[in-house]
Design a protein around this nucleic acid. Structure first.
Lengths: 336, 336
DNA sequence: CTGAAAGCGCTTACAG
DNA sequence: CTGAAAGCGCTTACAG
């Protein structure tokens, strides 16, 4: 996989320039002609050149990349990754890419200079171009909660989202609910689709007809839970329970209910997904599907570290178990 | 300040051993006699040796150190630091020290190997020994929300905690509350003491006698808000409002009230401190004192980067403004 | 704008 | 367990 590490000598030979010239390009000096610089840079990129100082230093840095750093979600993953990395004497570099191409480039340049030993990508914050480049650099890549296709080339870590969606829905069915609303996650994420399918599968297994009006869009954030819940309440025949595909949306839904003077769980049951630490303390404490986020982080870090040491992971794809946590936001429907 | 960088040659000379031997110690090989290793390690530490590869590379890494990575608080700081660092093409290494001495050592060793360009410490997670060592290494240090003395040697970034504590209390006084409970933060933190003093100052200014029974201990976490609030409710003459020194404790307090069937704000007003993103969505949305956490992170990162480039910061100590955000958890007391 | 030469900091065999 | 020797990857003057 990783052929002999390229040195500036190699690049110089291939470019037909001297070693000092390549050195200048690598260090971003401005005393190089544009033509030469372009040629050398192209070669540098193509070969995935990485500054090596003198010789191979031990794994010392792991990169953890998010699209945004704007949810309590993120800190759980960071915690898991940091724990494993810290134990291994490895630093954890946290970045947010914000879906901007320039931002990803910036990060990649820095990553190369730092000679990072592995990358953990949360929900594929990177375009395929960048991923190819990582491959060329020989930096191992692990994806947590992948977005794209169901058969990515990279090893992935996820949770049993389908089973979790099913468990939450079964819980509501067992309480006697028949009309159960569902607030979706962003459809591009695999985990969103799996949760929705789990919901549908549970309804199906219970012979409850699926009403498409009961499934409303969302994006995992509070606001979407708020508006989604309002939408469900405005239905001619509103549901008696709401299953939100994330805890944040569940809290948004509870706020929508509170504003209408409806009580949880007396007037409406609400279930979330994630089990963020704070939902133990929401009013009322949230029934939700626990996703072992920090465990997922730990596992991803372990895998990335193994790959950096050229140890093949036991399995290239892993799903950790989700678990229904019943608290105080669910109860039988009024009419029963 | 920073004398000539030490090389392994310097260390070898001083220790009276060969260069390869020092190299072996630095790389943690085990084929060195304990006596030699000890002598060399002592010298390495004393001179603050840092691997330099070949020659000086640009600022590329900033270290952000927490005691624990267990609160939504942390992610706000991380976000601010990461933004500034990212823009500067610098990576952000996040670590949790957990108050364990060995953990700090581990981190320091890694930091040295990585040649970090600056350290941002959140609430002084490090012992003074480690701080001295950083100084020797010539790595600039910025402290966010300092713990110890009020006149630290390092530049610090904080918020106007005293003014915030006062503003929250004044708000409750204006609503007509006279018995206001206070749930404290950990007393070793400067910010905790300042919030308490702000609370007292407001009572004092309004000529409301301070009842020491109304001040209960806490540690910023949910649980402490829960038990603290229960303690206040069990008082012979309970308060009509609770000011918690953190949002998480405020949410814990709301849960304690809910369990007793008391409504917020009808039966009891609750104010928090921080304005974490999620408290906009608590039930009811929390009145709180906004602390610009991500701004504090941004500022700390900017300062650390400046110091790394030997630019003196405008002021070595800075407090960003807090701001009262009134939402739905406060109202006039019943009896008025 | 570029290269030949010297040199720096470090590591890797090898020998004992 | 330790050092003398060779060498690697890179940079820094210097010269043109």
């Amino acid at each position: 996989m990783a052929k002999r590490k390229v040195t500036i000598t190699d690049i110089a030979d291939e470019a037909g320039v001297s070693v000092p010239t390549v050195s200048r390009v690598v260090n971003g000096r401005d005393d190089v002609s544009p033509a030469t610089r372009a040629r050398v840079e192209e070669l540098l990129d193509r070969h995935g050149y990485r500054r090596r100082g003198t010789s191979g230093s031990r794994a010392a840095l792991l990169d953890l990349v998010f699209t945004d750093l704007d949810s309590p979600w993120a800190v759980e993953i960071i915690r898991g990754v940091e724990e494993v990395a810290h134990e291994a004497g490895v630093g954890t570099v946290v970045s947010a890419i914000h879906d901007r191409a320039g931002s990803a480039r910036q990060w990649l340049t820095n990553l190369r200079a730092r000679a990072s030993d592995g990358v953990i990508l949360v929900t594929s914050a990177l375009g395929p171009g960048i991923q190819d480049e990582l491959r060329r650099l020989g930096v191992p890549l692990v994806v947590v909660d992948p977005a794209g296709s169901s058969a990515p080339k990279e090893p992935t870590i996820g949770a049993t989202n389908w089973a979790g969606g099913m468990a939450a829905t079964e819980h509501l069915l067992e309480l006697g609910h028949r009309r159960i609303g569902f607030i979706q996650g962003p459809p591009r994420l695999l985990c969103s689709r799996a949760r929705l399918d789990g919901y549908r599968a549970a309804l199906d297994a219970a012979d409850v007809p699926a009403d498409t009006a009961l499934v409303v869009p969302g994006d995992f954030y509070h606001e979407a839970g708020f508006t989604g819940c309002n939408r469900l309440l405005n239905l001619p025949e509103p549901p008696t329970a709401v299953f939100a595909a994330s805890d944040q949306m569940a809290l948004g839904a509870i706020e929508a209910l509170r504003r209408r003077g409806l009580r949880v769980p007396e007037d409406m049951s609400v279930v979330g997904f994630d089990d963020l630490p704070e939902v133990r303390w929401s009013a009322p404490p949230l029934t939700t599907v626990r996703q072992p986020l920090s465990e997922m982080g730990r596992l991803a870090a372990q895998m990335a570290l193994d790959l950096a040491r050229r140890v093949q992971p036991a399995s290239p794809r892993m799903e950790l178990a989700t678990e229904l946590v019943v608290r105080a936001s669910t109860a039988p429907p009024r009419e029963v």
